[in-house]
Nucleic acid binder design. Structure first.
Lengths: 228, 228
DNA sequence: ACCTGAACACCGTTCAAGT
DNA sequence: ACCTGAACACCGTTCAAGT
């Protein structure tokens, strides 16, 4: 009655979970099915992961760890150094779109996520950013990666469903949504658009560092009142 | 045997779902519990919503619809006009953090989401952006709102858990994560930081429109190779 | 000491049986 | 014709009963 495959381990469970989600989506990832995939009962998994939540956290951390490359530290141009991480993260997530919501919304902070944050923070500090601005910069870079990628990752399925969206393409809703109707058919390459956003953010960070940001457009309650 | 409360309706179900999630979080929102909250059995809800998925989509659309204010169209400064929507969206989501993952990840496109997209697109077109750049601009603005807000929304719970994070604050991990240790204690106001990001993005959009963007940092596979 | 089958307390949704 | 209780096919997780 020895197990039909090699002994389980935390890493084998983790890898099987990633493979299962890659193959059949995040919804298909249940403890029961994951167990079946590994040739064991679901309960055996609890010997290696504390809970499904802990497993999801481990998956997130493994993915984020993949965004780091020790090699990047040798890039002397801080813009290129930041761009390298941002593009690697984007590629990583677009390769497994199911992971975006996990990475974007789980508050857990594992070593992978810490090393990723450290990489960005160090790049900014090395570039002469103050501690305060490096802190903001980390959040700006992280927010950009996640927000933009989440949006691109969720778009294909929208087109697949697309009852309303098709009407937009056909121009049937032109009177109600003239702006979208005018722009929706524009050429649209995900990687190209992401690269544009990366450059926009990095240029913005450079301007922040150098004190070249314009006056505020308005903060907090101000925006309710037109200020033109 | 008349129902103990007023007759159900799609809107009453929707409002109850929002209230339940507000009170007890998204995990507490089950059809059974939602029914109980309305004094009916879970199955009665299916008379007014096609499925739980459809209900979640309706919740998203109701929330996003709240980001629009007809008043904004009269703001002549396009920067202020964009900033108004971006700040309203942020406030709306920070008031119900459970909604961020829903809004950020659901691919459904309802009328609320369309009107929100139309507002941003029109603001950009009116400001002289080309159709192509307005299209990119919508994605840039939307990605910024969602990415940044998701990040801020997930942070409080991280601090609550915070085994590793506390060590960072204490400086115990200074040798492993020197950059984060140096920056983590910086003063940090969510609204202030978001306003910074909004201004950074709007300034970036203005520069895009005027053809003042710098040379690309690198796209696609290029980033794997140091280009400094 | 270790493992796991059955069980518990849930899900979303279906549908036949009731009125 | 309308409504809904019971049922189905799942969940994550516990724990006592087995070896």
């Amino acid at each position: 009655m020895t197990p039909p495959r090699d002994a389980l381990s935390h890493d084998r469970v983790l890898q099987a979970a990633l493979a299962l989600a890659d193959a059949h989506g995040l919804d298909a990832l249940s403890m029961r099915r994951l167990g079946a995939e590994l040739g064991v009962e679901a309960m055996s998994l609890y010997r290696h992961v504390a809970s499904k939540e802990a497993l999801l956290d481990a998956m997130v951390d493994a993915i984020v760890r993949g965004w780091i490359d020790e090699h990047d530290a040798s890039i002397t141009d801080w813009r290129a150094r930041l761009a390298a991480v941002m593009h690697r993260a984007h590629d990583s997530l677009m390769a497994r779109p199911w992971a975006v919501e996990l990475v974007a919304n789980r508050p857990s902070v594992g070593d992978g996520r810490l090393r990723y944050a450290e990489t960005i923070t160090t790049a900014l500090l090395d570039a002469g950013f103050t501690a305060q601005l490096a802190h903001h910069g980390l959040h700006i870079v992280d927010g950009t990666i996640m927000g933009f990628t989440a949006q691109q990752a969720r778009r294909p399925s929208a087109v697949a469903l697309g009852d309303r969206v098709r009407e937009l393409y056909d121009g049937a809703l032109a009177s109600e949504y003239p702006g979208i109707t005018r722009t929706i058919r524009e050429h649209h390459d995900h990687d190209e658009e992401y690269a544009l956003m990366v450059d926009l953010v990095i240029e913005g960070l450079a301007r922040l560092r150098d004190g070249r940001m314009p006056a505020r457009t308005g903060v907090g309650a101000d925006y309710a009142i037109a200020r033109a």
